[in-house]
Amino acid sequence: MTPAPEPPPSPGSVPDDDAVLARQVLDDGKYLVLASADAEGDPWATPVWFAREGRELVWVSRLGTRHSTNVAARSAVGIVVFETPVPVDGRPRAVYAEATAGEVPEADRERCLAIFDRRSRAEGLAPWTLDRVVAPAELRLFHAVVSRLFVLEPDRDVRREVDLDL
């Protein structure tokens, strides 16, 4: 007999399991902070509203933005997603990731757009269609594929890698 799944943690509670924590923060998170660097290595960080499916994070940006030109020059990025609002108990919950990012190639555009559109509709926002993310539109779809995922140890700035099949 298969045991019944554990109920999800109540809002504001801190799960004991790193994988549960990571999944909860990623599922509840609205914005990720994208840390990128240009061709010379000059860093830049920016928040972007995102949608997720598995280890793939999808967002929409203008091609000329600093973070978009950075990921075109260097695909290696760092990402952090914080629980919001951050609790005042001194134990912020966050997920840190190493990933490879870039503009979504044409072959993956419809699949990634569907991921983004589902999240948008779930949030009560307008639907996303191809005409919003291809020329002559200014916006494009971008994505990052997570290669490594981390959470912080409680009460310390020490990262623990999460073996997580998102």
Rank of each mutant, 00 (worst) to 15 (best):
T2I: 14
T2F: 08
P3T: 10
A4V: 14
P5I: 13
E6Y: 03
P9N: 06
P9F: 05
S10N: 10
P11Y: 03
G12F: 00
G12T: 00
V14S: 12
A22S: 04
Q24E: 14
V25G: 06
L26G: 03
K30W: 07
Y31F: 10
Y31P: 01
V33P: 13
A37I: 05
A39K: 15
A39P: 14
E40C: 11
E40I: 10
E40N: 15
G41M: 04
D42T: 14
P43C: 07
A45P: 14
P47F: 08
P47H: 07
V48I: 09
W49D: 11
F50M: 12
F50C: 11
A51I: 08
A51R: 06
R52P: 12
R52Y: 01
E53D: 15
E53M: 00
G54Y: 03
R55A: 15
R55F: 04
E56T: 15
L57M: 02
L57H: 01
W59D: 00
S61Q: 05
S61H: 01
R62H: 06
L63S: 09
L63K: 11
L63A: 13
R66G: 10
N70W: 08
A73E: 13
A73V: 07
S75H: 12
V77T: 12
V77H: 13
G78K: 09
I79Y: 08
V81Y: 01
F82Y: 04
E83P: 11
T84K: 14
V86C: 13
P87E: 13
V88C: 07
V88I: 06
G90K: 02
A94W: 05
V95E: 14
A97H: 06
E98W: 04
A99M: 01
A99L: 01
T100W: 06
T100C: 13
T100Y: 06
T100F: 08
A101E: 07
G102I: 07
G102L: 02
E103V: 09
V104M: 00
E106T: 13
D108T: 01
D108G: 03
R109H: 11
R109Q: 12
R111Y: 06
A114N: 04
I115P: 08
I115H: 05
R119I: 03
R121F: 02
E123G: 11
A126T: 14
P127R: 09
P127S: 11
W128D: 10
T129W: 00
D131R: 13
D131M: 12
R132W: 02
V133E: 05
P136A: 10
E138C: 02
L139A: 04
L139F: 04
L141S: 12
F142I: 02
F142P: 03
H143A: 05
V145G: 13
V145E: 14
V146H: 00
L149R: 08
L149P: 01
F150V: 11
V151M: 12
L152T: 14
P154G: 08
D155F: 10
R156D: 14
D157I: 12
V158E: 12
R160P: 00
V162Y: 02
V162F: 02
D163N: 05
L164Q: 07
D165C: 04
L166Q: 03
L166E: 00
L166W: 11
